[in-house]
C-alpha cells in the first residue's frame, strides 16, 4: 500500500459507499481509511462491502495486502480476492500465507479459507494448508477449510 495515499474524508467515503464504481476506482484510498479513525474505518468497510469485484489492476495490491496485519486490511484483501474467483488463481500463495499466519486474526484466516475455495484448481501446497486448517480448533475455520477443499476438488 502506498504510504503517499491520503486518508479520504468521511463525506468522500460515504459517496464511495453508495457508488460501487467510484469505490473500485479508489480502492487503495479506502484501504488507507480501514486502518484509521473508527468512524472512517466504518465507512471504508461499507464501501468495500458494496463495491463488488475489484478491478483486475488492483489484484497485485490486494495480494500484497493479504498479509498486512493492521486493522482489517488483511481481512478485506482476502475477501476481495475471493470475489475475483478463478481470475485470482495465481495468488493462492499469498492467501495460503494469510491462512497459515500466526499474526493473522481468526477472521482473516477464515476469509483466506473462503477465498481459496473460490479460486478453482489449487496447488498441492495450498491443499495441504487447507487440510491443516480443517483440523483447526476454530470450528468455523475448520468448517470453511473443509468446504473449500471439497469445492476445489
Amino acid at each position: 500500500m502506498s504510504s503517499q495515499t491520503t486518508v479520504p474524508t468521511s463525506d468522500t467515503l460515504q459517496l464511495w459507499a453508495n457508488d460501487p464504481e467510484a469505490a473500485r476506482a479508489n480502492l487503495t484510498s479506502i484501504f488507507v481509511a480501514l486502518d484509521s479513525d473508527e468512524s472512517l474505518a466504518a465507512w471504508a468497510t461499507e464501501a468495500l462491502e458494496n463495491c463488488g469485484s475489484p478491478l483486475e489492476t488492483d489484484i497485485e495490491f490486494l495480494s500484497r495486502s493479504c498479509n498486512e496485519h493492521r486493522g482489517d486490511v488483511a481481512y478485506w484483501a482476502c475477501k476481495l480476492i475471493g470475489r475475483l474467483g478463478p481470475e485470482a488463481n495465481e495468488h493462492q500463495k499469498e492467501l495460503t500465507a494469510a491462512l497459515q499466519s500466526n499474526q493473522a486474526t481468526e477472521a482473516t484466516r477464515q476469509q483466506a479459507a473462503i477465498a481459496l475455495g473460490k479460486l478453482g484448481a489449487l496447488n498441492e501446497a495450498t491443499r495441504q494448508a487447507l487440510n491443516e486448517a480443517a483440523q483447526s480448533k476454530d470450528p468455523r475455520l475448520s468448517r470453511l477449510a473443509q468446504q473449500s477443499l471439497e469445492s476445489t476438488l
Binding site: A42, T45, D72
Partner: peptide, 10 residues
C-alpha cells in the same frame, strides 16, 4: 441496544 458484534475490527 445490543453489544458490539462482528468478526472483523469494524
Amino acid at each position: 441496544i445490543g453489544p458490539r458484534l462482528g468478526r472483523s475490527v469494524s
